[in-house]
Write a protein that binds this DNA or RNA. Structure first.
Ligand SMILES: Nc1ncnc2c1ncn2[C@@H]1O[C@H](COP(=O)(O)OP(=O)(O)OP(=O)(O)O)[C@@H](O)[C@H]1O
Length: 727
DNA sequence: ATTAGCTAAGTTTTT
DNA sequence: CTTAGCTAAT
């Protein structure tokens, strides 16, 4: 029988084992893609807790995305089993979720109220606009996005307002500084923190309150960090603070996969690890378990020209596999079509499943042509990023209601929904209230209250905000409804609260009257489903916890491969993932490398790394695609091929005139545009109701597979003959 | 107070 | 070509 140690070490190679068994002191695992770095982290945690006897609660593992954290927890669970009574799981989370945890528990020490909300980019921008307005600065002249970048950059480098003051060298930075000051004030007043605060304020808290820091130092005796090459100054400081005494830090990463320098990630953090910790042990992993020989060779050839790198050996004993394919098209539409038809071909020939395919691109805008092609041919797809679920208007509206219920001081959220749906509290009124609240240094919500009491007491000589009677009436109704929500929120579940809020405010009604109302209401219902799922998992859920997961959630967390849908994703978001089949579209100069980066050699090297990350996601099949012409802002322009393509030694090119490519395209082009998708409910004249489970193109037609409700069962029908009615 | 219609700007990449 | 933000008209 195997003991715990054997089970954990069994599926590791010698180097990985060495890393797992190095328990005490700083440990650096440097290795290329697919070499099992993440596996080392998981197994090392298992080893620490199950073999070495470390209490799970003393272990902290930090990842980049929630998805990575979730996957790690799951793998841990299957490795060591969990949740026996008395068994506390290790902490596995993202830097940002760690920040939330720290600030929620101890933020009061630096003046952060426990009920704080987290402002995302849109909330930040709206706060910046308000600041500009207050300062009498023209948002046309001073781009709010640029100012946000300035503030965020400062925070990412741990520059507080005072620090930033010293750094002002340009006029623009002076402006940024003035906005920074007011912006932070507004955030404070709204009891809100932004993404960057989660990290920076945690570090500041630890700096100022050593006894709080000690709590975390004593709690987290073993710390493991994934993707260390993409940590920024705050994250670096945070980890150093926690591991200051025991120095049990295990950093894992790959300098060649550092692609977030624009977010102020500093590759020096990983390169200097051995200087920071002279006693550090370094383990290099050299075997790639993910990709075929062809894919690995191609990727290595792309990264090789970078000057700022140490070459590390990376090999595979996998078979050569099919060569890397280059498909040249004449437009982005044709490019997208090539992708779809190739996926169809792979599926038909039993070579790959659509669910195992990912299409990757440099910029979000590129997803559009792909979506069109997938929709046109009834192929299911899963879009990551872009119009993110959590950023949709209707979702943000509903979340805003919940946020105000939890934290009435949240000005941005209150502003958002104060007149949604229309309740005759117009711009003028809001302006008056806002000005009054800023002058009196109180939240907007208080301004509403004052306005109301004033009018009730018919106080003519009051200093309160001066409003129309109609507006006051609306405000009264609004405050009353919020009071009732706050009361409700204490007694009912979040799902119920969502129902009450959308119903009582008339939000559902008004949404359904808008364009695409049904679809958007469905999104709100999906939010309800998410809430239900979380509640089912965690039992009664606190409103704050729900809002927190809403703030920190990102789309990538939702990838499920069971669905049979191909994944559309940016190259950045694809980091850390793997797929049997990968398509990288837009392999053109100005796009990859992006025109904004290609002038600066340092940035150009990062573009190369982005390409490298994408290529190394592929396990079996890799397609690179480029279009000779592409439209940008409506006008067509032609781009030369990406210079990276020239580095790849063996590549099979399919030009636009290539026979097989044309053949494929014919099949799919002749397929009628079908308005059916897998999952759609349909009705057939004799078989009755059913659900579409598959669509296969045929020459000039399509084969639709439908699972019928009645006795008919699963049927394959020809689209042209079946006369299916969509329900 | 609300809305339709116009103009100008925008595409890197995100927790 | 889109879309967000602003102006003019109701
Ligand atoms: N010792 C091993 N034996 C067999 N398969 C392994 C081994 N180690 C890792 N793998 C597999 O190799 C693949 C890549 O592993 P993992 O994701 O841990 O690599 P990584 O180094 O974190 O990759 P990346 O840096 O590209 O994200 C996974 O499918 C994993 O299951």
């Amino acid at each position: 029988m195997l003991n715990a140690s054997d089970t954990i070490l069994n599926n590791l190679n010698a180097k990985q084992r060495e890393a797992v068994e190095s328990i005490e002191g700083p440990l650096l695992v440097l290795a290329g893609p697919g070499s099992g770095k993440t596996r080392v982290i998981t197994h090392r945690i298992a080893y620490l807790t199950r073999v070495f006897g470390v209490a799970p609660r003393n272990v902290l593992a930090v990842t980049f995305t929630n998805k990575a954290a979730k996957e790690m927890s799951e793998r841990l669970e299957s490795l060591i089993g969990t949740n026996e009574t008395n068994y506390r799981n290790p902490t596995v989370g993202t830097f940002h979720s760690l920040g939330v945890q720290i600030l929620r528990s101890h933020g009061d020490r630096i003046g952060i109220n426990k009920d704080f909300v987290i402002y995302d980019q849109a909330d930040q921008l709206s706060t910046i606009r308000r600041s500009l307005d207050q300062l009498g600065l023209d948002p046309k002249r001073y781009n709010p996005n640029a100012i946000l970048a300035g503030i965020s950059g400062a925070k990412n480098q741990m520059l507080t307002l005072e620090d930033h003051a010293a750094k002002r060298t340009h006029y623009f930075e002076e402006i940024v500084h003035r906005v920074y000051e007011l912006y932070d004030n507004l955030l404070n007043r709204a009891n809100a923190v932004d993404f960057d605060d989660l990290l920076m304020k945690s570090v500041l808290l630890f700096q100022n309150e050593p006894e709080i820091l000690k709590l975390y130092q004593d709690r987290y005796l073993y710390v493991l960090v994934d993707e260390y090459q993409d940590t920024n100054v705050c994250q670096y400081n945070l980890m150093n603070q926690i591991t200051e005494h025991h120095k049990n830090i295990c950093a894992v990463g790959d300098p060649d996969q550092s692609i977030y320098s624009w977010r102020h990630a500093d590759i020096q953090n990983i390169l200097n690890f051995e200087n920071d910790y002279p006693e550090a042990k370094t383990v290099l992993l050299e075997q790639n378990y993910r990709s075929t020989q062809h894919i690995l060779d191609g990727a290595k050839a792309v990264i090789a020209p970078n000057q700022q790198r140490k070459d590390m050996p990376l090999w595979t004993d996998k078979e050569a596999g099919p060569p890397i394919n280059l498909i040249i098209s004449s437009s982005e539409q044709e490019e997208a079509l090539s992708v779809v038809s190739e996926i169809v071909r792979l599926e038909r020939e039993g070579l790959a499943q659509p669910g195992g395919c990912a299409i990757m691109y440099r910029t979000n805008a590129q997803s559009r042509a792909l979506e069109d092609a997938f929709n046109r041919y009834g192929m299911p797809y899963h879009l990551i990023g872009g119009l993110r679920f959590w950023e949709r208007k209707e979702i943000k509206d509903v979340i805003a209601y919940l946020r105000v219920i939890q934290n009435p001081s949240d000005d941005v959220s209150l502003n958002r929904i104060i007149n949604v749906p229309n309740r005759s509290i117009g711009q003028k009124t809001v302006e008056e209230l806002t000005t009054w609240s800023i002058e009196n240094n109180v939240p907007l919500y208080s301004a509403l209250k004052v306005a109301l009491t004033d009018s009730e007491q018919a106080a003519t000589d009051s200093n309160g905000p001066r409003l129309q009677t109609r507006a006051v009436k609306s405000i009264k109704a609004l405050l009353e409804i919020f009071d009732s929500f706050v009361r409700d929120s204490k007694n009912i579940s979040i799902v119920e609260l969502l129902d009450v809020v959308t119903e009582k405010t008339g939000y559902r009604q008004s949404l359904l009257n808008e364009d695409d109302g049904e679809e958007r209401w469905d999104n709100v219902q999906e939010l309800r489903t998410v809430a239900a799922q979380i509640e089912e998992l965690d039992g009664e859920l606190a409103l704050s916890a729900f809002l927190e997961s809403a703030s920190l959630a990102s789309d990538i967390d939702k990838i499920e491969d069971e669905s049979g849908a191909a994944t559309l994703i940016t190259l950045h978001q694809a980091k850390g993932l793997e797929f049997p089949t990968v398509f990288i579209v837009g392999m053109e100069d100005n796009l990859l490398p992006h025109s904004r980066s290609k002038e600066d050699p340092v940035q150009l090297e990062e573009e190369r790394r982005i390409c490298y990350v994408g290529m190394t996601r592929a396990k079996e099949r890799l397609y690179l695609l480029r279009a000779t012409h592409r439209s940008l802002f409506g006008s067509r322009l032609s781009n030369p091929p990406s210079p990276f393509l020239a580095n790849i030694p063996e590549i099979k090119t399919q030009g636009t005139n290539d026979f097989s490519a044309t053949e494929n395209k014919k099949t799919i082009l002749e397929m009628p545009a079908i308005d059916l998708r897998a999952g759609d409910h349909v009705e057939h004249t004799s078989y009755g109701e059913g659900i579409v489970i598959g669509i296969l193109p045929e020459t000039g037609d399509a084969q639709i597979t439908v699972a019928f409700k009645g006795n008919a069962g699963v049927k394959r029908l020809l689209y042209s003959l079946a006369k299916l009615r969509k329900l």
